[in-house]
Design a protein around this nucleic acid. Structure first.
Lengths: 342, 342
DNA sequence: CTGAAAGCGCTAACAA
DNA sequence: TTGTTAGCGCTTTCAG
């Protein structure tokens, strides 16, 4: 082990001098890919010296030289939304194994800020981008122009310019409605998320389609301005005020379902005896809500893993093909749904 | 705006040529700090050309030259623990404003892996490190040797080598016990987290101290192997089996409280009528658990913001002084606590 | 106020 | 098998 605090950074040159070789030889010895081209003896000596000196390669220099950073940018709309931590966890896991690192940023809700963050990441030389956010057109164009590999996560690109990995949102809503119908519900409401993003749009379509398939009216629909607990209040009120005969409500995600719970509670309505509720996502703690929430499960961690793997694959093999992976969700029945009272 | 897809990257040289100036002038024009030393006219021309060409500065080159990356490494033990997202959110917010970016990684639980990740981050030239994890001694030494600014978050360094920002854990437990005592409880159990980390250690001490202050026995203590929902099962069982007269249990964090809920439910015990429960952290959704959890609130987002600001401050002003910031937690009374039955 | 020149630390082509 | 050389793109003295 090294003694003495070297104030000045240790470089390949230092290692080379100490080992009595040229710096390029050190570089080769340190790289597992090229190591075999050297004498075993030399490699060992270099490795020993480099450890002894406490050498740490300077990533910036390598980056500049190789034009590859082994950094992946991950852009989320809002980390405090509980669907994202498991996604991030899955991403981290895959990147970690591949010796990549993740740069992570929240983008709030504005396209401008998203744009700024993406630009900042591109300037930091990310090798690829995982977009779980909003993702406005401008952003996607920018990445395309710079030829930066991008995978969209949890949301799809309407114009099919980039690969994506999503849950089958129409199917998810079809499953949810179907469950309620099979319990005997006929008057079913829907709290929709913003339809500007694919998740919101497809789930609403899924709801309407499945209602139609059962010959039911899909008139009790109210829009939330965001996929948050708070944003559910207004649509929940609208629904409950205007459609007195509803026996069940589907929410476009679990956070909206939770906001609906809040409103039910403040009106003294009981779930599921007065109103059945179905969510979507099976977010963390959906099973310990009051009551435990019946919902549609997405495997978020796997989604993150898949996305990261796809991206690395694209980077390494320089693929250009665009694919959409659609994961199939499944129903999780808990205590927020029951047969309607007669 | 630029037309034509430049396959090759745009550099300062390109901008310089196009603007009819030298690359160093471009550099000066692009840097707000040095911009004023140039003719207004020249600056404008350069800015226009650089936008027109779609110039994005190469961070790797700047990093290599300036020896500063504007990257902060953030190391977490486990992103899926709901205390961390708000912390990360706070960090992100501050870094974003300062035009820094965050590299984020999970470290699982092993010191080896943590070590590896920190080394990887140092190699990537992070300007500073925010450690919310485990943080074994080795890691801290390594950072100290390389003179990388570090702030520990949510955990303190026993040996006072680095600055930290934590909640007052002893006070937190004192508040929790005090609340139960004031409700009339005398036989109170405790599910402790691992005492290898400061959070676990200090909370246990806080529990014991406060019990002693009230002249109560602190004999009903069981250890969990981790701060997770699952890890609460064994200690919960041990406590419930061995101490039949308990009327209340404090858990070292909310996840452990949740695991205790699980065990209570499987035994048909009701909370709070049979057993009162108090948690710690006021994690996301503590208010919608069944029953809503009485707990001790830590302002996690603020903690993240403070930590990030402290770190940036240290980096910019090159301070060496070590400080510990201790945030005061507060009690949040919900429905998991009530007076004991007589 | 602007240009010239050097160099951050690394790697990859080419030579030997 | 190893050394030489050049250069990635930027910033920053130093000159002028």
């Amino acid at each position: 082990m090294n003694v003495g605090r070297q104030m000045t950074r240790v470089t390949v040159q230092d290692v080379a001098r100490q080992a009595g070789v040229h710096s390029s030889t050190v570089s080769r010895a340190l790289n597992p890919e090229t190591r075999h081209r050297l004498t075993k003896e030399v490699v060992e000596r270099i490795l020993a010296v480099s450890k002894d000196l406490g050498y740490v390669p300077n990533g910036a220099a390598a980056m500049l030289r190789t034009q590859r950073s082994k950094i992946i940018g991950v852009i989320l709309p809002d980390m405090t939304n509980p669907v994202f931590p498991p996604i991030l966890d899955g991403i981290d896991h895959v990147l970690d194994e591949a010796e990549y690192v993740a740069m992570v940023a929240n983008t709030g809700k504005t396209a401008d800020h998203e744009h700024l963050v993406v630009e900042r990441f591109l300037g930091r030389q990310v090798d690829g981008l995982l977009l779980a956010a909003f993702s406005d057109d401008h952003t996607i164009e920018m990445c395309a122009k710079r030829r930066v590999p991008v995978i969209m996560l949890n949301r799809g690109d309407q114009r099919q310019r980039v690969s994506s990995i999503v849950s089958d949102n129409r199917l998810g809503l079809s499953i949810a409605v179907n469950h309620l119908v099979s319990l005997g519900h006929r008057r079913i409401g829907y709290i929709s998320g913003p339809t500007g993003v694919s998740t919101g749009k497809l789930r609403l379509e899924g709801f309407k389609a499945e209602m139609a398939r059962h010959g039911l009216d899909a008139d009790a629909v109210a829009m939330a301005s965001a996929f948050t607990r708070e944003a559910a209040l207004n649509p929940a009120r609208a629904l409950l005020d205007r459609f007195r005969d509803l026996t069940a409500v589907v929410a476009a995600n679990d956070l909206l379902a939770l906001g609906l719970y809040d409103e039910l509670k403040s009106r003294g309505l009981r779930c599921p005896s007065d109103i059945s509720v179905v969510g979507h996502n099976d977010m963390l703690f959906a099973d310990v809500l009051m009551p435990p929430l019946t919902t549609v499960r997405i495997r978020h961690r796997e989604m993150g893993e898949h996305a990261a793997r796809m991206l690395l694959h694209r980077i390494r093999d320089n693929l250009e093909s665009i694919v959409d992976i659609v994961l199939k969700p499944e129903l999780v029945v808990r205590e927020s749904t029951a047969a309607p009272r007669v």
